[in-house]
């Protein structure tokens, strides 16, 4: 069974890159471009994703809000969240981890690094 990943990113080319990086390993990636669509998607699928990759600064709702909503869910299986952003001073990174982010990658990302972290998190959470 392929893992379902939700990618929340308002940049134009990043989704293509992520799809490329995670392609070989047979992931099913769904892509939305802002916080509003992200919440919509999560509600519609009843949080039916195995992993979420999100940017921080986006219209409607930022990555932290999505993160806190996902992590504060009482029922359902926990979903790992990776933040990938070009914004990120020390305070923001700390804030991200405080909210329960599983990883924080700064843009530009290293393809191998992203792949390994995705794999590892999926394994951890699926055990």
């Amino acid at each position: 069974m392929s893992s379902k990943i939700l990618l929340i990113e308002d940049d134009e080319v990043m989704p293509k890159i992520v799809e490329r990086i995670l392609h070989k390993e047979e992931y099913k990636i769904e892509h939305v471009t802002n916080g509003k669509e992200a919440f919509q998607k999560l509600e519609d699928t009843d949080y039916g994703f195995d992993l979420i990759i999100t940017d921080i600064m986006m219209p409607y709702a930022n990555g932290f809000e999505i993160l806190s909503r996902v992590k504060n869910r009482k029922e359902g299986k926990p979903i790992p969240v990776i933040i990938v952003s070009n914004a990120g001073n020390e305070d923001m990174i700390l804030e991200g981890f405080k909210l329960g982010a599983d990883d924080f990658l700064k843009k530009p990302v290293i393809p191998g690094e992203l792949l390994i972290r995705v794999k590892r998190l999926l394994m951890q959470y699926n055990r």
Binding site: E12, V13, I17, I21, K107, P108, V109, I110, P111, G112
Partner: peptide, 15 residues
């Protein structure tokens, strides 16, 4: 411009 845009998002071997 597009190449730069890509490179702002990815480094490593792809970069």
């Amino acid at each position: 411009d597009r190449l730069i845009h890509y490179r702002n998002n990815v480094r490593g071997s792809m970069g």
